[in-house]
Nucleic acid binder design. Structure first.
Lengths: 233, 233
DNA sequence: CTGCATCCGCCTCGATACTG
DNA sequence: CAGTATCGAGGCGGATGCAG
């Protein structure tokens, strides 16, 4: 008899936690926020998660209508899991939790897992629409093998996968450095000086990019101009 | 050796879940969102939570700076737990999760716990600032022994504890009915007809109240007028 | 009586092995 | 590749004890 453990409270929060409150569940949702993912992809990105647990969680989420199975290309083989519209509604909440948790990321320990594609969600979580500049432009990020960019257009900023067309700024770094900067444990300046971050493009664009991400540049930002290729990652 | 279980991921979401992702933790936070609470108060509102668990969770949250101890009146005795500013930042996330979870509240089962003060948070979660009317007024709610109101002023709606001064509408009901209405499992009209909800005040105010809460009235709402005291709870 | 700490049975979790 | 089966370890839930 498999009697699932619930809070048994007649309340929206308790009901929500009965669905996505168990261990690993929201991290599985995070993986699906980047688009459909295969069983083995999820497993590879979540070290420590047992295969039985993932199977059970996915089955449960499908049952509750948060996740559904899709076949990515053609018919038959190549199944993948994706968020339903209900699951997609978790996006602002997961991003908000991620932003809140930035406060608690500590020193990088050797046993910690880091994935470059998390940087995409980190950027999406950090975007502050109230600090968007009136300049329409793109800022491209190359975090290890992942490429994505911020597109500013008409006073709105959005995170987009893939390369930008003609980015006003390109940032190259590794996943660990990226998270450390996002958590405020490292300024872009220090990261550049220590060779972990390389910036190309207009200095003003860099400042505007940091601004929309709520980052301290770590530099006075008085002089405009071109950033010389000081550091290569 | 108590080696706390963590996700060991260098990521904001994983760090957040390492702090508030364990069982019961967010429900404890919910209790503190209503104001400082005593150890025994929390325990009484969370049936099934073991005493050791609550002590451990609180100690951990204090350690991480999410919760702190305060003495409510005078010095010495009568300690209570309250959210720190960091913990307070969880409010929109917890409310968002509560709103998301409304989708999943099912039929009320006899073993389910319901607390009238949860209604206050439910209202706060349901408020839709984009649907605030231009009429400055208050809507009072009496859910079992709990009294609170929505104050609309200058295009902003907020949930406030306590009675309103001269409410444009007063709703009396019990906690279970309140949650059922909030979850869309019951319309205010049906609740009234079955005697579980009593409304007093201007009919137009009732409609505006339902509107700002994103509720279907369940009535055509064409004729304005006074609601007769049809049902008493 | 409140605010915990200790103990114990059980269930979930995490790792490995195995199968279609 | 996508799971299922199994099993040891540990977190959880309930009862009880105890100090202020």
């Amino acid at each position: 008899m498999s009697t699932r453990r619930t809070y048994q409270q007649y309340c929206g929060l308790a009901s929500a936690l009965d669905v996505v409150g168990e261990r690993w569940t929201l991290l599985i949702v995070r993986e699906l926020l980047m688009g459909p993912a295969r069983y083995s992809d999820i497993l590879a990105n979540l070290p420590g998660l047992g295969t039985n647990l993932l199977a059970e969680r996915l089955k449960f989420l499908v049952e509750r209508g948060v996740v559904h199975q899709v076949d990515v290309r053609g018919t038959g083989a190549q199944l993948a899991y994706a968020l339903t519209p209900v699951g997609e509604q978790l996006r602002p909440l997961v991003l908000g939790l991620a932003r809140w948790g930035m406060e608690f990321v500590g020193d990088l320990r050797p046993e910690d897992t880091v994935r470059p594609h998390w940087g995409f969600l980190a950027v999406e979580a950090m975007l502050d629409q109230s600090k968007v500049s009136d300049v329409d432009e793109c800022y491209e990020f190359r975090v290890d093998d992942q490429v994505f960019h911020i597109a500013v257009s008409g006073g709105r900023a959005s995170a987009v996968k893939g390369a930008a067309e003609s980015p006003a700024m390109v940032a190259r770094t590794d996943a660990a450095t990226f998270v450390q900067i996002g958590a405020g444990r490292l300024t872009p300046l220090i990261a550049m000086v220590t060779g972990r971050l390389a910036l190309e493009g207009d200095m003003d664009a860099v400042v505007r990019c940091c601004d929309v991400l709520g980052l301290e540049t770590g530099m006075p930002a008085r002089h405009a101009g071109q950033v010389p290729p000081v550091a290569a990652v």
